[in-house]
Design a protein around this nucleic acid. Sequence first.
DNA 1: TAGCAAATACCTAAAACAGGGTATTTTTAG
DNA 2: CTAAAAATACCCTGTTTTAGGTATTTGCTA
Lengths: 210, 210
Amino acid sequence: MSEPKRWRVMLVDDHRILLDGIKTLLGSEPDMEIVAEAGDARMAMQLLTYVHVDLLVSDFSLPDTRHTDFLNELKVKFPNLPIVVLSMHDEPEIIRDVLNSGAKAYVMKSNSREELVKAMRHVMLGETYVSPEVALKLMQATQKTNSSALTEREIEIVKLIAKEYSNKQIADMLFISERTVESHRKNIFRKAGAHSVVGVMKYALEHKLL
Amino acid sequence: MSEPKRWRVMLVDDHRILLDGIKTLLGSEPDMEIVAEAGDARMAMQLLTYVHVDLLVSDFSLPDTRHTDFLNELKVKFPNLPIVVLSMHDEPEIIRDVLNSGAKAYVMKSNSREELVKAMRHVMLGETYVSPEVALKLMQATQKTNSSALTEREIEIVKLIAKEYSNKQIADMLFISERTVESHRKNIFRKAGAHSVVGVMKYALEHKLL
DNA sequence: TAGCAAATACCTAAAACAGGGTATTTTTAG
DNA sequence: CTAAAAATACCCTGTTTTAGGTATTTGCTA
């Protein structure tokens, strides 16, 4: 009988239990073969230099790197390696970041094993894939005209407020008058619907300005 | 040949892939049998009312409840059901919360499958169990005299400050004088080493007071 | 090039806050 | 029962912030 083509897969996840689980799960798929495992980005990069891998399935959050850093490094060193990202986050910003950083598929950990396998097969066919839940989240996000209405300068000032600088200090470091800072501040308050710095901070956190 | 006693296990985790993985993993253990699965606390509680379960293995974070709420509810309704908590968090406060809320074991998702199985067996023998990593974290924590130095009342006031209430408003809602609020506030600032509300907010976030 | 958004700057006045105290009552723990 | 810790309350003073304006300059774009 003819040997079926088996894709050589590398798994990256710092949660051993999940990693073991996925390995066992994929063991029953005839066209997949786990040839490498890593618990963090460093180990993954090292293994990739001497193990031939057709497909990489990686956790979104790794202990030793920020997600997009890892993806960007991979894009540079192994531009043809397709990547499926497994994540527990469903925030549109994160999903977008991941896909923009070169991942070919985004699957939630709350999805079924079938979704993961489906994503892997799609990716091996050169297609990108996001699970239905993820697609939904992305759709919803495009609806609301997000992005805070704050201008660049205002965001700059919000960041300085978050660092506990007073109006006077901010004025000094931006080489503008204290009056100007007050004006910006006033506009920030209005736009954020805040009545105290705390409100501005909440707004900044919600809109990921910090 | 004699039937070996198999423990009837229920798995609770909202990440299907992990759940499927663990199920497959435990499939090879001769003394464990997965008899129920749930993706959230509600479903778990329902299933427990009519499925006989010897041991519950639950994710720490579930979509529909705060961890300790679920554990407390279990303690009331099923006081004799031993629980192994699987978690990705290694913060001592969380570990302590979980164990204080009645869980018999705490295992990290980054631990090996053997750890999970070991924890389950220990628990079935009536013992408590934490994986070596977890034990280490707990040890380290007892060293530093942690817990914010803030008193109950001060924490209460920090929370109100975070909700953007002014001293006057806080005074009104706590039925104390504005002077008193100012005093508390002053002490909070001193203890937190802050020089503005933003500093207090950062302190509060770091010490998980909000 | 006319128009608009953004950034700049100033004025005023009330309110809130920060920081320095001190002092009394209530609670807690030894 | 007593000492310490916490909660309560007030005083004072100067500073900062908030909130309401108006106005000029700059840079982009239709």
